[in-house]
Design a protein around this nucleic acid. Structure first.
Length: 480
RNA sequence: CGGGGCGUGGCGCAGUUCGGUAGCGCACCUGCUUUGGGAGCAGGGGGUCGCCGGUUCAAAUCCGGCCGCCCCGACCA
């Protein structure tokens, strides 16, 4: 198997770290919990960004930028908000060689500063809806950092919108949740369950929080994105008001929504295998790598001519292609090198192929011999787009199959307590519990209610914890 | 903050029990031979052994204190 990568079956946490190191996605920094994102990892983020940014603009949003520093008093205005974020704030007390009059919070999220500005910019119903997004870094002093999944500083986007009515704002909340779900499935090839958070799990300051939940390779859940309906909670404390057509002052109804570099962690843990990373073509920094093979200089020249032609053809089709023509490195080494990095498609081209008029191709998403196939040289360039498309689809299908095969049910708490240990995964159960039931569930099983799926079945059943009749089913799992 | 583990070239480790002046694998550099699944040989560079103090002729090793990292929990995008 792959050198230097722990088997994921044996130690999933270790495997995860090994993949990040070996694929050169990120490195640790001198400051605990902070992470250096290396070029290869960063270009995955660039692809995520490009795709989402297009969707945001298509849904009418504009990008802006708000400052990193927020007056401490802003955070304190909304009661739930301060309670939720206070423990994890980084606060600047000194600057310019002096103690500051008012400490500055390094933003953990930007609802407060944005409301401050919205209250200046919004006067009339004609200014609404206001639909903004920002790409930024935020800081949350979490207790236990993990690369990509929970770092002290992380990159994300945060959308912030203001609307005239609750109905409009709620519509926006779900619209953006759908944008995320669509991205996860069709770009990242990660199947997700869109749903609503329970009271206990919702965002500090929101009326309702929504989430997309994905299953990782070890059966744990990862919240891949969130979208909140904030109601008028922030508007009330920042006086974000507009004059309606009846000449009356009204509070705006708001939303906020975000996804972060955590998504990269999700991609690693959903698709990665014992040989390292596997990337869906739409996110891969390198979609096709070509490994030229030649025994001597004359063969090399001949092979490289053909390779250059193929490279040019693929580049014209906007396919991200790289030719690995490093000398003095064996083909076998190169194969492994690119496999660890998860490149979806590799083409091996040598004298033998030129003679036979085809190339050897290998798709990263399949193991061993199943990965290999030949493509005729004549049709190669034209065929690559659909091969990549096929790989993209196969990866989503595989992820759906894996998730479904680890989705179970449980009749009662005793059942569940054992099941979640022996068979980690999603547990779809009838639920009518309250916050206390959730706390107890977490304490006894380490699992939490991940979400109340938007899609609910017909009929009713008995809550697996309280025994009460209910029409609601929820997803339980251990989570990152 | 609780429980467990660990700090020795870039990475992974041995050496610590029983003090004697630092070694192995990978990676890196040079040369030659190699190139269809992690090439071979030869030569070479790189470490105040986490930090501070103590014991000793002598400390990676013994003693005291401190710091940091990783994993498992509570918290979280």
């Amino acid at each position: 198997m792959a050198k230097n990568i722990t088997n994921p079956e044996k130690d999933f946490a270790r495997w995860y770290q090994d993949v990040i190191r070996e694929a050169e996605l990120a490195d640790s920094s001198p400051v605990r919990g902070c992470m250096v994102i290396r070029p290869y990892g960063y270009s995955i983020w660039e692809n995520i960004k490009a795709s989402l940014d297009t969707s945001f603009k298509r849904t009418g949003h504009k990008n802006a930028y708000f400052p990193l520093f927020i007056p401490e008093s802003f955070i304190k205005r909304e009661a739930q908000h301060v309670e939720g974020f206070a423990p994890e704030l980084a606060i600047v007390t000194h600057a310019g060689g002096k103690k500051l009059e008012e400490p500055l919070v390094v933003r953990p999220t930007s609802e407060t500063i944005i409301n401050h500005m919205f209250s200046k910019w919004i006067n009339s119903y004609r200014d609404l809806p206001m639909l903004l997004n920002q790409w930024a870094n935020v800081v949350r002093w979490e207790m236990r950092p993990r690369a990509f999944l929970r770092t002290t500083e992380f990159l994300w986007q945060e959308g912030h919108t203001a609307h005239a009515s609750e109905e409009e704002a709620r519509e926006e909340t779900l619209r953006m949740l759908n944008v995320y779900a669509d991205f996860a499935e069709n770009v990242a090839a990660i199947p997700v369950i869109p749903g609503r958070k329970t009271e206990r799990e919702k965002f500090a300051g929101a009326v309702d929080s929504y989430t997309i939940e994905a299953m990782m390779g070890n059966g744990w859940a990862l919240q891949g994105g969130t979208s909140h309906y904030l109601g008028t909670n922030f508007a009330r404390v920042f006086d974000t008001m507009y004059l309606d057509s009846n000449n009356e002052q009204q509070f705006v109804h708001q939303t906020s929504w975000g996804v972060s570099t955590r998504l990269i962690g999700g991609v690693i843990m959903v698709h990665g295998d014992e040989n390292g990373l596997r990337l869906p073509p739409k996110l891969a920094p390198v979609q096709v790598v070509i490994v030229p093979i030649a025994r001597d200089d004359s063969a090399r020249a001949e092979v490289l001519t053909v390779v250059d032609r193929i490279r040019n053809g693929l580049e014209k089709k906007c396919i991200r292609v790289e030719v690995d023509n490093r000398e003095g490195i064996s083909p076998g080494f190169k194969f492994n090198y690119w496999e660890v990095r998860g490149v979806p498609l590799r083409l091996e081209i040598g004298p033998r192929d030129l003679e036979e008029g085809h190339v050897m191709a290998s798709q990263r998403n399949k193991p061993g011999r199943d990965s290999k196939f030949t493509v005729s040289l004549d049709s190669l360039v034209d065929n690559i787009p659909e091969i990549l498309e096929r790989i993209q689809n196969e990866m989503l299908d595989e992820a759906i199959r894996k998730r479904d095969s680890r989705t179970y049910s449980a009749k009662n708490l005793d059942d569940f307590r054992e099941a979640i240990v022996n068979k980690p995964g999603f547990y779809n159960v009838w639920w009518d519990g309250n916050g206390e039931d959730e706390a107890r569930l977490q304490q006894e099983t380490k699992a939490t209610v991940r979400c109340i799926p938007l899609e609910q079945p017909e009929g009713t059943g008995k809550c697996f914890m309280t025994g009460r009749e209910t029409n609601t089913r929820v997803i339980l799992a251990r989570a990152y």
